[in-house]
Design a protein around this nucleic acid. Sequence first.
DNA 1: AATAAGGTCAACCGCGTTTCT
DNA 2: CAGAAACGCGGTTGACCTTAT
Length: 312
Amino acid sequence: MGRAPCCDKANVKRGPWSPEEDAKLRDYMEKNGTGGNWIALPQKADLKRCGKSCRLRWLNYLRPNIKHGEFSIEEDRVICTLYATIGSRWSIIAAQLPGRTDNDIKNYWNTKLKKKLMSVIPQFNQRKAPPPFPDSYQNSPLSLSSQMLPPLSLDSSSQYYACGLNKQFASHEFASLPQYLSTNDNNSLGNPNNCSSFQAQEGYYSPLKESNNFMFGGEGSCSCSDGSSGGQIGQTREIIKQEEMGFQDYSIYSDYAYQYVEKTNGYFGENIAESYDLEDVKKLMGSTSLSCNGSILDENKEELKLMPMYYF
DNA sequence: AATAAGGTCAACCGCGTTTCT
DNA sequence: CAGAAACGCGGTTGACCTTAT
């Protein structure tokens, strides 16, 4: 048996709100607030609407200080960075953009921003958003700025991808990864000895593309400590710089930009979209720094729990 | 000018989580 | 502590608008 409906569907109005309904809801909210109960509100406010509908209308449209219209470049960048970090958790993303609603951001992402990025990053559609953090990280989170690193603990039965490498690693092989990097670097990671960090995430994204040695947005992300892995223009150096400043950049998007920038320099050769607008990428990803000094704050202004970065 | 196709966005739906009793 | 009620969220839908043919 399914859940009981939240209201009598037959006796509630649906569809677009009229100005009269908006006025009723606005008046009621300004005088009384929700009273802690959205379900009971329509009756009190003399609205033939479902409580959930009232809540949505208020939060997304009527509530004071709602911002509509064009998103700024800065807002674009925040959305991209956060999406890359936490996925489609729109309410959290909205909490970082005053006046914007989760619905607004979701629509904007789905209809415009995603396409904009896809047009400049052809491989974008190969990846999925990250899932919620595993339970095992919930109790011992690291903040972005933390310098403490937990012991490397991986599921021995799982396969993990190493950054930029067309090879899977079982967990027991991780110890040999730096050596592998130094002897099998045929995909232009630059000096593999400089590839110092590896972010282990299990099974989050789509499989490697066979046609492309370099993994876009894959299960691991890699940064080179001195920028020598093709860090020829600003974007790459910016990411490196932020790491040096003490907070690592976890953004998968940043990796996209990072790798993409290298490709645009011809570092990886072919397979570049002809129609990209590098300025767009620069604008969007020109700074990967997040708000609040590199931390991501949730609605309660508490630091989110983030996957740790492992170092060899 | 008419129609089709594509884009946008407000609103709905269903489900997981939280709060209440 | 368990079950019910309410909340909040993300995915999806569909009406309306714009652009292309």
